[in-house]
Each structure stands twice: as C-alpha cells, then as structure tokens.
Design a protein around this nucleic acid. Sequence first.
DNA 1: TTGTAGGCGTTATCAA
DNA 2: TTGATAACGCCTACAA
Lengths: 337, 337
Amino acid sequence: MPKSARPLPPRAPTLDDVARTAGLSSMTVSRALNTPQLVRPKTVEKVLAAVKATGYIPNALAGGLASRRSKLIAVVVPQINNNMFVDTIQAISDALALRGYHMLLCVAGYTQQTEAELVSALLSRRPDGIVLTGIHHSADLKKVLLNASVPVVEVWDLTPTPLDMLVGFSHEKVGQATAEYLLRKGYRRPGLLWAVDKRAAQRKNGLCDTLARNGIANPSVVDIALPARFTSGREGLRELLARGEFDVVVCSSDTLAQGAIVEAQARGLRIPQDLAVIGFGDLDFAAGNHPSITTVSVDRQIIGQRAATMLMERIEGMELTEEIVDIGFHFIERESA
Amino acid sequence: MPKSARPLPPRAPTLDDVARTAGLSSMTVSRALNTPQLVRPKTVEKVLAAVKATGYIPNALAGGLASRRSKLIAVVVPQINNNMFVDTIQAISDALALRGYHMLLCVAGYTQQTEAELVSALLSRRPDGIVLTGIHHSADLKKVLLNASVPVVEVWDLTPTPLDMLVGFSHEKVGQATAEYLLRKGYRRPGLLWAVDKRAAQRKNGLCDTLARNGIANPSVVDIALPARFTSGREGLRELLARGEFDVVVCSSDTLAQGAIVEAQARGLRIPQDLAVIGFGDLDFAAGNHPSITTVSVDRQIIGQRAATMLMERIEGMELTEEIVDIGFHFIERESA
DNA sequence: TTGTAGGCGTTATCAA
DNA sequence: TTGATAACGCCTACAA
C-alpha cells in the first residue's frame, strides 16, 4: 500500500477513464454509449462493462456544450397549484422522459422578473425547446426567442399567428358555447364568478358577447383573485347573491363552481331549480359532485403530450404536418345546469 | 454593402464577442458579469453595454462545465397531480429562482425506470443538489447518490437516518394523533378509505397500532388505487358501507374525505351524527366544505422552501444548524368529526 | 469499425 | 484591476 495514497479524488470518472479501463479510445466509448449501432457488439459489451466498473455517469454539460444539443426542454407556467396546468406538466414530463429529455420547470407566477428576463435566464441553459403557457408575450420576449432561434410551443390558447408552434383551444369559443347553452336552456339572469386571468378573460368575452347579441347585456361579474380556490367560490357566490337575483351562476373554473354549489346548498337553494351552476375544466370531482357539475371538458394531458412530441420531432429534424393544433373542447351537460 | 454578406450565422454571441466589442478580455467580461465587485465600475458599464449590443446570453453549459457548479437542482416526485406535492414543488421553484437556481423536475410515477436509473440520468446533468420525495430508496440509489457526493434533501417524511438532509414530518404520529382523536371523541367503529401509498401506509400503521392498543383491532380498510380522487372517495365509501356499520370514516386524504362526504350526503346520512369523516392534508376546500372537514394540516410550502434553502446553503458552503427538520403537523377539529 | 485532432464557451489560476 | 493560459469532458469531422 503506497503511503502517499490520497483520499479518493472527488473527481467523477470521465469518458477517458472508461476508455482506459476498456482499452479503447474515448471516442469509441462515446459511440458505444450514444450510437451503439455504429460499434461492434463485442466492443459495446466491453464498454458497458467498463462503465459499470468505473461507475461512470456521463456529463451532459460537456456533452451539450460539444454537441450543441442539451436534451433539455424548458417549460414556463404561470402557476402549478391551480389544478389546470398540473396535468399538462405531468404529460410533458412523461413524454420527454420516454426519449431521454428532461424538463426544466419554471413557475412565473410569483417571481418579480418579467417573463422576458425569466426566459433569458432559461435560455442560458441552452434548452433544445421551450414550452410557453399562453400567447400573450411582450415584444422583448419575442425578440429574445426569435434571436435564440429555439423551437417554441405555446400552449393552452389559440391564435392564427403563434411564435412558432402551438397546441391549445379557443377560449372565446368556450365562452360562446357556454352562452349558447344558457340561451338554449332558457336562463336569462346569469351572474359570473370569474378569476382575474388572461385566458379566463377570453372565455368571458366569448360568453358576454354572445349573451349581448341575444339581449342579455352586462351580466353581474364578481372578480376572483388568483389563485381561485374552493373558498373563493363560496365567498364569490355570497357577494353575487347580495347584488341581486340570478337563475344561473357561470364560474371560470370547476373549483369555483364547487364552492358556489356548496354555498348555495348551505343557503337551502336547490340546484339547478333555484340556481344553476356552470364550471370549466371538468376537473376530477366535477362528474362525481352532488349535483354533478355542468362544465367544459378540455384534455389537459393531450396538450402536454402533443406539445412535447412536436417539440422533440422538430428538434430531431422531422417535418411537422401541423404546427397549430386545436385540441378543441366538449361542453358537458350534467345536473347543475 | 459587401456583396458577400452571408445570412447571420446561427451561432449565438459568446463571451469573446462581448469582449471584442467592449475592447476587453473575455476573462474581464466574465468577471464583470459574475463578480462585478472585482471589476472597476466603469469597466462593468462598458461590459453591460456590450452585452446589450450583442444580445449575449451566457452559456450555462460551458459555465457549469468549467466551474463545476450547474446552479441546477433536481427534484424527484412520485406524481404532481395529487394536490399534495404541488405546493411543495412551487415553493421549491420560488425559493430557487430567488437565488438564480433552476429546477429540473422529474416525475417518477408512471415511468418504467427505477428510481435509481432515473436519478442516474438526472445526475448526468450535474445538479448541485437533489430533492427526493420520501425516505425509502433502493440500495442502488443510495450507492449512486453517495458516489456522486451531491447534497440531497429527502422530503415529506421523517427518519433519524436520512441519506443527507431531511425536511418532513412523522406520518406515524399523524396516525397516532388521529387515533387519539377518535378515541377521545368516542368513536368505536372506524372504517378506512386508504390510498395505496407508502407514506399513507405509515399513517395507517400509526392509526391502527394506537387503535389496537385501545381495543379496536383490524378496522375495515378499503384500498384506494392511486391517484386517489374525489370519485374514489365516493366509490370507496359505497364499498365500505356495503361491508357493515361504521361511526367514522378515516380517509388518507381530504380529497377522499370530500368524496366520502358527498356520497354520505347523497344517501341521506347526517355528518357527523350518522357518520363522521376525517381527512388529511387540509387542502384548500377542507375548511370551506359543508360540513367543514376535520383533518390534519401540514405546511406543504414550508417543506419546499426549507428544502431548497438548506440545499442552497449547503452548496454555497454555509454551515447548517440542523440537517433534519421536523415541520410537524396540526390536527384540526372541524364539523365533520 | 476505430482512432486522432481540435474545438464547444466558460472559469480557475497565476502572472502582470 | 486586468489578462494569458490551461483546463472542464465531450463530440464533430476527418482519417485510418
């Protein structure tokens, strides 16, 4: 035992270490790991054995620097504790994992930075692609993104002129569909519990425009601060009912609807006879609620799955058949309205 | 206009480009950006101007490679769409953002990989720290982590022997506290709706052990498959009630409790007179529900915030006063039990 | 099928 | 306070 034996150097094994123990060049080891089909099977075996022996873990920083591909996808969402985006995020993560990509998740909600600064910081990681929530971005952000020439998917909204790719649905049309349902069912005195949120605002526009065209102008709206919770629904309904009489309450989310329903029930109102309630999102409790909640269903997972897939295909040089995907929505009539 | 002007090279501006336009060395530019206090103010100004002029965005891959610090924290959770972890994740993300770190989020739930493979893949990104959910890990995983000598925080559980650092609470004790409450209130025929989940199982152990010691052995348990949803709560109660008579239903989460309550109400049972219900988590609807849900409150955000902070302090070489943080919990008595 | 040379963009280190 | 030089660990390009 040499007396000068230093404690293990904290340096992690490198490709060269593996190459040395395998009796090969580092380039061959790299190939065996990344493109095994270009390497003789026996050689690959040798390499794998050496990898196991050394405990080698590739350094993606070095790899990304050299190859100019990071296998990293940056995802920017306004919040994740609002029940809507979570499923999309999980779907993105799952889809990425299948192909060896990783997700850098950034919650824009409560930070002071502007979205542009936030994305700039993310770009320093050299992601191969970016997922942005929504379609309303500052000029700064657009400049930064175009400059970086990185593939981008905008999600959860629709526009004929996305930055690059897009997966979403029309919030305006959701609003219209909701209005049409109200009219068809004969509701004439709607009240709104509405979260202060861009996409929700678009749904409100679609709703109110259609109502106005049919003689129902300026329905009463209770603004709900984000995050819109169950409790906000109860409180919101309380405020709404203090303002007058309504035959239906339209809510910007099922969460609010559930709260509103409980408040109504606590007041002895029958739903939908005394007061109907409509939600949005078809969250997991909507169908099982008592009464079940009439709402709009959106496939939140598909948004994530398609966004991830489009991004990866683009990155890997495939031709995309569509760059704008409208996943649509379904109005679901249940007991509450 | 030179006729040979090529279209812009897709190459992003580098430190050298900035250095050239600023008339400085790249090393000085690097310093001006990372440790401005070591650079003459006027020089810093020049650098910032050149950065703006070139549209320079640092390359964190190169930086991380050279400095051996990635400013990346990897977070591994079993799922994110279960309402519990979301708040923790958001808190982690927020805390990291404040200090210039980014979060690599990995959902272990539905992938085929073992946790060890998953973490190995993450380690290739050379994160400066890792957050793991739970304390039960394979020997492989432990080996990989120790080998990598990367700071680790385990969260959402408690043990005297964490891998490294830990922020959580005792699920056993939550179970005990729940049992004691039942006994104190005089409930004698409990039934359980319980998600098939490691941490939930620990709470069940604490609950059942304490009950057994007080003469209530082997309560009826309905296993709930993950993810445990509102609907699972309704169905679970249906199954439970088919098995016999109960005076209280203990649920492994508020979500299940809410479902159980709705099912009970739909059957005309009064809560808590005919059937009491207890949940876990104090999710946002628990207090506002009708009836409000008796439950156990855990500060899910604090878990994330402390985990992130401990990790960053350790990374930045500070001495930690505690490496194991028990954030505790509160039993909250409300109307449902 | 394997190997050699050189560079990816940054920072550590030492010198000026 | 600033600069020159040499890594950091891997991959592209080309050669054998």
